[in-house]
Design a protein around this nucleic acid. Structure first.
Length: 278
DNA sequence: AATTCTTACAACCGCCGGACT
DNA sequence: AAGTCCGGCGGTTGTAAGAAT
């Protein structure tokens, strides 16, 4: 039983014409998004479904911001990239109107080169001051020490399993089952969001790899449907930020961005796409 | 003016995982 | 359980436009 080809036989590739854009826009506006393969056929577009999806999501969808990326946006991209790595969709979610593709391109063509020229300031790219530079150096030193001691952590986690449940909190934390060999012991692998929020509150040093792995962990918690807020009084200070629709990753990013802003003496409000919890 | 080089970015491609049958 | 569909993601490529020679 052969697989149905995903694209029409006479598939058109390359740049989209104005006519094609109009057809796609009109069709999606009328019939909605999704089922891109069928959509392409019904709309009479000789395009791959994926191509239609990409064209709509990256260029035609209302609300997409075109044009030059502002300094604020650039700064935000750099910060988020340090937290998340090449996870463009996650980064794009924090920049309203910008698409993952646009951010990825901007990074590859502009920022990666810029940061290579200024490796030390890559962590904190805002306008420099002496105090600022001093802090940057301190942070970079700490980071380098940490990186030297710790092998690089996996960027992606494919498999998740529960192996720890926090008592009296109704909150269980997954851990990575594909840990690098010898990179962590089992206790380290069971660090929880709770633990990490305590770390944040205690204003521990910024360590890049810890952030990356923690973000991954939080994403996995989301993936397995972890939405229940803990109730421990010990942790109550940390959880004032949690809303009824608790989203561990969003919360984590908000906390980190606020922390970085406070560290650098900048107001991060503009970067947070969610308002403060009510 | 012609040619070559560089840059920017739109689009393609392969892979993955969840949903469905 | 296995096969297939479908959407999402991130890496890579193709190419137009501008800069340099």
């Amino acid at each position: 039983m052969g697989r149905i080809p995903c694209c029409p036989k006479e598939i058109v590739k390359g740049a989209w014409s104005t006519e094609e854009d109009e057809i796609l826009s009109q069709f999606v506006t009328t019939h909605g998004e999704g089922k891109w393969h069928k959509l392409a056929l019904k709309a009479g577009l000789k395009r791959c479904g994926k191509s239609c999806r990409q064209r709509w999501l990256n260029y035609l969808k209302p609300g997409i911001k075109r044009g030059e990326i502002s300094l604020d946006e650039e700064d935000m991209i750099i910060r988020l990239h340090r937290l998340l790595g090449n996870r463009w969709t996650l980064i794009a979610k924090r920049l309203p109107g910008r698409t993952d593709n646009e951010i990825k391109n901007y990074w590859n063509t502009n920022l990666s080169k810029k940061l290579k020229k200024q490796p030390t300031l890559s962590s904190w790219p805002l306008s420099p001051s002496l105090e600022h530079n001093h802090k940057c150096e301190q942070v970079e030193k700490t980071r380098q020490t940490h990186v030297a001691l710790e092998a690089h952590l996996p960027r992606r986690v494919k498999d998740v399993q529960y192996n720890k449940t926090l008592q009296n909190q109704g909150y269980s934390s997954p851990s990575c089952s594909n840990e690098r060999e010898g990179s962590r012991n089992s206790d380290e692998a069971t660090n929880t969001l709770n633990d990490y929020l305590i770390d944040i509150d205690q204003n521990k040093e910024f360590i890049e790899d810890d952030f990356s792995s923690k973000v991954l962990e939080i994403e996995d918690q989301k993936r397995v449907g972890l939405t229940k807020s803990p109730t421990s009084t010990t942790l109550s200070n940390q959880y004032h930020i949690l809303t009824s629709k608790f989203d561990p990753l969003e919360t984590f990013l908000d906390v980190e961005l606020e922390r970085m802003a406070s560290f650098m003496g900048h107001n991060e409000e503009n970067y947070c796409n969610r308002g403060p919890p009510s």
